[in-house]
């Protein structure tokens, strides 16, 4: 018997190891046991209460990646806000144009500007509507603010417009208030002027010039610009500077006026000028 106990004593570590492994395995296989679940619930509740008080401590190694993630999210959200603002502004612009379109009896073709030049002597715009939409050469281009220019070239889906800030443009205009006539000229250096206005004519800063019925290219009454400066050019004529009604830097959408010059009138005037 003594030998037996001595033997047991010599292998006690192995016996204990076997016992504990068996206990561990039994526990592993009885994980869904009600008593164990109850015991675990108590333990988890106790530790959970303790841990919740410590949840304010930041996880130092994660701060950098968390900051990076937040920065990225911030940029993403900022972009979304910018896009939403852009959509809102576009909506406002289009609503304004739609309102203008519905209040105008003459048919209009709406178009979006897809290219424009503003810093040259001969400035133009390209729009995304063309022959298929009914656009033809010489049709006026307008916005709800006023005159933009006229179509000078057209393809099936696009059209090129000559804007009033173009050296080749000559337009008969009229002072809306005093009905004084003149010719709108662009000097190629950013100045829009009204020429051929006599020195004693009644023109003051703030007056609006509109297209005149003398023009065969444009229908009368379209606002062109507001007088910003007046003076004497020489002993005979006034020097009048105009601020365009349309802000060409911000313009994005336009209408093409379905109006064509009278061919009969043009031919008649041409014949007379030849004589």
């Amino acid at each position: 018997m003594k030998t037996f106990w001595l033997f047991i004593g010599s292998i006690k570590e192995y016996l204990l190891l076997t016992l504990l492994i068996v206990v561990s395995l039994v526990l592993m296989f009885s994980n869904d046991n009600t008593q164990i679940r109850f015991l675990r619930a108590i333990a988890v509740t106790t530790v959970g209460t303790f841990q919740s008080g410590l949840s304010a401590i930041p996880k130092v190694f994660d701060l950098e990646s968390e900051n990076k993630y937040l920065r990225e999210a911030n940029i993403k959200l900022s972009n979304e806000i910018a896009n939403l603002k852009e959509s809102k502004l576009e909506n406002l612009r289009l609503s304004k144009l739609l309102n203008f379109k519905s209040n105008t009896e003459i048919p209009l073709i709406s178009a979006k500007i897809i290219n424009k030049t503003l810093i040259q002597a001969r400035n133009t715009i390209t729009i995304n509507s063309g022959r298929y939409e009914g656009i033809e050469i010489d049709m006026p281009i307008i916005t709800d603010d006023g005159l933009v220019g006229r179509i000078i070239s057209v393809s099936d889906n696009y059209a090129l417009g000559q804007i009033i800030l173009n050296k080749d443009m000559r337009i008969s205009v009229k002072n809306q208030r005093t009905r004084v006539d003149g010719i709108l000229i662009y000097d190629g250096a950013g100045n829009l002027t009204v020429g051929n206005v006599l020195k004693n004519s009644d023109v003051n800063p703030g007056d609006i010039f509109i297209t005149s019925e003398y023009s065969n290219l444009y229908p009368p009454g379209i606002p062109v610009g507001t007088v910003s400066e007046t003076g004497n050019l020489d002993n005979l004529f006034k020097k009048i500077k105009l601020m365009p009604q349309v802000n060409f830097n911000l313009i994005e959408e336009v209408f093409v006026y379905k109006y064509l010059p009278s061919k009969e009138r043009a031919d008649l005037e041409k014949q007379f000028n030849k004589k």
């Binding site: 561990s24 039994v26 592993m28 994980n31 675990r40 333990a43």
Partner: peptide, 25 residues
């Protein structure tokens, strides 16, 4: 060692809420 190991593992297993007996083993 094995007594300390089994006891500690069992406590952590209880607190961990997953496989009871796995860390003890």
């Amino acid at each position: 060692g094995i007594i300390a190991g089994f006891s500690s593992g069992l406590i952590i297993d209880l607190l961990a809420g997953s496989f009871l007996g796995l860390l003890a083993l």
